[in-house]
Computed example of a mutant assay.
Amino acid sequence: MPYDHDDAPETIVRTRNRQAGQLDYINSYYRLPERFGVRATIGGRVRRADEEGEIVDTAGQYLRVLLDGDTKPVTCHATSKMAYWSPKAGWVQATRLPDPYAVAGASHSTGASG
């Protein structure tokens, strides 16, 4: 993997455990497998806007992506302008979760009477 470091074995284990926990959170919170049939994984190919890259790390609820041709990864939201490569389906565009507080079909009032 292009972003690996020459760390001590115990550091590598802690890093992999952190990444696994954060990826589990990202995949379950955004329901990537259920909604889109994809999973965020270290080494997984993604496209942010029009730039392709590889997931190389996690940062809490965010992904660290090394874009093709770059030397430093960027922090990306799992669903904002992100598409995931799937061998079965090709590029799969992720979308944000629905707003649980939005009322379907409701118009927003500004409080001014007209």
Rank of each mutant, 00 (worst) to 15 (best):
Y3L: 07
H5M: 15
D6V: 08
D6M: 10
A8N: 13
P9S: 12
T11M: 13
V13T: 08
R14T: 09
R16S: 11
R18S: 07
A20N: 15
Q22R: 10
L23V: 09
L23I: 10
D24T: 13
Y25W: 15
S28H: 13
R31I: 01
R31L: 11
E34T: 02
V38M: 04
G44Q: 02
R45E: 02
R45Q: 05
V46K: 01
R47E: 09
A49E: 12
E51R: 11
G53L: 04
G53R: 05
G53K: 08
E54P: 00
I55K: 03
V56P: 06
D57T: 04
Q61K: 12
Y62G: 05
L63S: 01
R64H: 07
L66C: 00
L66H: 07
L67R: 13
L67V: 11
T71R: 14
K72I: 07
V74N: 08
V74G: 12
A78M: 01
S80Q: 15
S80P: 01
K81P: 00
A83K: 03
Y84E: 02
G90F: 04
V92Q: 06
R96T: 09
R96D: 11
L97K: 13
Y101R: 06
A102P: 02
A102S: 12
A102N: 10
A104K: 10
A106H: 08
A106L: 08
S107F: 14
H108I: 14
T110H: 15
G111F: 12
A112M: 15
G114E: 11
G114F: 15
